[in-house]
């Protein structure tokens, strides 16, 4: 066993430079190469400088609202996020609940597992026509697509997590004679929490992927339709700005769930 010795803590630029510098260099390099490649007359894609020049109003003003679908990218993203939030929240509640039910009951598990395995492979957008047929409403259908996309990873991971509760912990609860309620809150849920969060993290990524695609088809305010609309009106520079937004938000979502899990889950080691 080794003794841990507290090292003197020095925060300085020198420490962060090696972390920040390499991606910055790569970014600059990519932009320069892009600029060179697309700087001829009438390029197929706009060069970075062209993008900044033509879409300047989108960059500087993310929250303008000129009515209808003519809104700033910030507002578009918020609208998409609202749909994701509803669908994702529903998926989490339903997914975790069914997951626990399926995980604790071997019989139910055997009955439903094959169907879950089939359904989870259906691509998100394939659900859209069904949803539209059922709900006859674009908004609800989009949320449904998020829900149906996010639920599988949450559900399946939860049920696995529940099944994986170590026998030792079950023994502890038996010896302490914990009742079902105590067992649920003090053993089952915390023990399967790492699995549940893994599922939720995967689900968050998938929902964001799905919403952009779904909005392209359903229309209305939202980042997905914004991109579709920009394509239809040949505003390629706007599409590129929107893609950057989509990427950033996707990353933020992933980190958010990750840190939430770190905050809540007390891991063994």
């Amino acid at each position: 066993m080794t003794t841990t010795i507290p090292l003197p803590q020095r925060y300085s630029w020198q420490k962060f430079l090696p972390i920040v510098l390499p991606p910055l260099i790569v970014l600059v390099l990519v932009l320069v190469v892009w600029q060179i490649l697309c700087s001829g007359s009438n390029p197929r894609l706009p060069a970075p400088i062209t993008i900044i020049r033509e879409s300047w109003h989108l960059i500087v003003n993310p929250f303008f609202d000129k009515g209808g679908t003519n809104k700033g990218l910030g507002l578009q993203v918020i609208e998409s996020l609202r749909r994701v939030a509803i669908g994702y929240a529903l998926a989490s509640v339903v997914g975790v609940s069914i997951g626990i039910l399926v995980g604790t009951n071997q019989l139910i598990n055997r009955g439903v597992d094959p169907f879950f395995q089939v359904l989870r492979t259906v691509p998100p957008l394939a659900w859209l026509p069904i949803a539209l047929a059922g709900f006859r409403q674009a908004e609800t259908s989009a949320i449904f697509v998020i829900f149906i996309t996010a639920i599988w990873p949450i559900l399946i991971n939860t049920s696995v997590g529940v099944q994986q509760v170590p026998q030792d912990y079950r023994n502890v609860s038996r010896i302490l004679r914990l009742n079902r309620w105590e067992y649920f809150w003090t053993i089952l849920l915390p023990a399967s929490a790492p699995y549940i969060f893994t599922g939720m993290r995967i689900a968050a990524g998938l929902s964001w992927l799905a919403i952009v695609a779904a909005e392209m088809l359903t229309g209305g305010v939202g980042i997905g339709f914004f991109i579709w609309d920009a394509w239809n009106s040949s505003r390629v520079t706007d599409i590129i700005i929107a893609l950057i937004y989509v990427g950033m938000v996707g990353l933020l979502l992933d980190r958010l769930v990750f840190y939430a899990s770190k905050l809540i889950v007390q891991s063994e080691e």
Partner: peptide, 20 residues
């Protein structure tokens, strides 16, 4: 016939709940 608090077990792998 059942586990109970009158017979407490100390397990080899301690079996403490890591979240508590």
């Amino acid at each position: 016939r059942q586990p109970g608090p009158n017979r407490m077990v100390v397990f080899q792998n301690h079996s403490l709940l890591p979240w508590l």
